[in-house]
Nucleic acid binder design. Sequence first.
DNA 1: CTCCTTTGCGCAACAAGTTGCATAATCGTA
DNA 2: TACGATTATGCAACTTGTTGCGCAAAGGAG
Lengths: 181, 181
Amino acid sequence: MSLSHAILTSLLEKPCTGAELARRFDKSLGHFWQATHQQIYRELGKLEAAALLESEELPTTRGQQRQFRVLGAGRRELEEWCLRECDPRPIRDELLVRMRAAAVLGTVDVTVEMRRHRGLHEATLARYLAIEAADFPAGVPRSRADGLQRSVLLAGIAFEQAWLAWCDEALAEPEEPGTRP
Amino acid sequence: MSLSHAILTSLLEKPCTGAELARRFDKSLGHFWQATHQQIYRELGKLEAAALLESEELPTTRGQQRQFRVLGAGRRELEEWCLRECDPRPIRDELLVRMRAAAVLGTVDVTVEMRRHRGLHEATLARYLAIEAADFPAGVPRSRADGLQRSVLLAGIAFEQAWLAWCDEALAEPEEPGTRP
DNA sequence: CTCCTTTGCGCAACAAGTTGCATAATCGTA
DNA sequence: TACGATTATGCAACTTGTTGCGCAAAGGAG
């Protein structure tokens, strides 16, 4: 049930329409909890039905937009959820499964895909670093909220760096030490 | 569709029954692609229906066990899958969402949960390190397959280390620099 | 003005993952 | 030998996530 709470969080930062929420998700919270627009609309519907949100028609604009706003009950629900325990998710990565498969097959080369992933992680890292430079310039005193937001971003940066370092190490591994049967 | 291929991989390493597969998953491949026993049985059924696997009753033992074995078509499917592209999964962690929520709420303390997560990651890291020490002792020459398996394990180790370092850094962040409104 | 594209919203169907329970056989033990 | 615990298998119902499509309103190009 994290998606609904991620939505509450985002709407609490700023009330907006579903489409805008989806766009904001892509740029910020969605880095750590992805969702398609359909998931978001469905969840918005449920949250409104549960009286944690309210919506208001914006008649003059394109389509028939609805502006969503968090209600008091929604805020309380979010506070409660924040204090509940949640276990970390284990890693889940196809590339790693492929490497195990390649190990048992003995006939496939996964280094191409590893190099491709290295590039993707490099690009993601660059994106995160750009956000950090823009949103959290050095030397400026930060509020508690900013500190938390920055920590979240630093987690993303740390992971991408870990991926990169791992890719480099794994690719540097000697391919055929001659011990193969 | 990674689960079916993870199953093929594991069965290719060694044919076995569904329950044994579930147990082996917990100890090895499952570190990087988790599955419940129901998921596994369902997938085994599909794979057998698709003629990528075959099964044989083991009548003398407890319950009515079935031993599964990968067929040639299964191996070919796995080889093909190994060469297909797969994008890395973005991070998805509740704790990070909670931190964003805490940032906007301003009233909740997430450091308790962060410390708990630190402990969990520490334990996981210890598990991985123990596996590495047991399965890949230093100084012993390794086959290509062993090198790949070790790389996969090193990915797990790198992540848990990244988590730990991040937790320490985030927890060291001054809690209230007085800039809060 | 008409046609095409974009934007906002949402349904429907499906795939993947989770949870709870049911069943049958075997094992250990009292 | 009767009873509870364990092991192996699986059904059913549910939640979550994905994909493809449809529709309506607004804006822009010809």
